[in-house]
Amino acid sequence: MTTADTMSHEIESLYSSHHSWLCGWLRKKLGAHCDAVDFAHDTFLRILTSRDLFCIREPRAYLATVAGGLVAHHYRRRAIEKAYLDALTNLPEPETPSPEYSAILLETLIEIDQLLDNLPLKARRAFLLAQLEGLTYAEIAQQLGVSVSMVKQYMLRATHQCYFSRSL
């Protein structure tokens, strides 16, 4: 049997044994909502396109982890969209971006947010202030109310995270 055959066999049995359980699990988490089926679908799609199908020992725990991650990602995206829209409404009229540009901005923001995933707020802000505003670490330290050496630590952590920690 080829690897591809084994894969599709694995996913088939995973699907038939646990799909309805996963839908139930999601429905319980999300409330009575049709989203559950969509999230379950996305969960299996995600697993199909990942390569770690062979090392699943606890299928339901695994499915719940992947599905939970997708739901969290979904809410996170919504939160960014909302924050972005709030930021836009505060802009003076002439600076409001065109709808097309606006859509690109939003996608880029979500991409940057993923790069900075899991960083504490102060580390994020330090990194963005240094990179985008060109503030010195002393200025950032003052703004965040922390020491300069703390800013350096934030910067190291954020830099490593942003450029070199993305698991693709």
Binding site: I80, A83, Y84, D86, A87, L88, N90, L91, E95, L105, T108, L109, E111, I112, D113, L115, L116, L121, R124, R125, L128, L129, Q131, L132, E133, C162, Y163
Partner: peptide, 18 residues
């Protein structure tokens, strides 16, 4: 990656993400 970072108005990035 920096090129992408710098493609967006700074205040929007800061307000939205941090």
């Amino acid at each position: 990656i920096n090129q992408r970072l710098h493609g967006i108005p700074t205040d929007i990035v800061l307000k939205t993400l941090a």
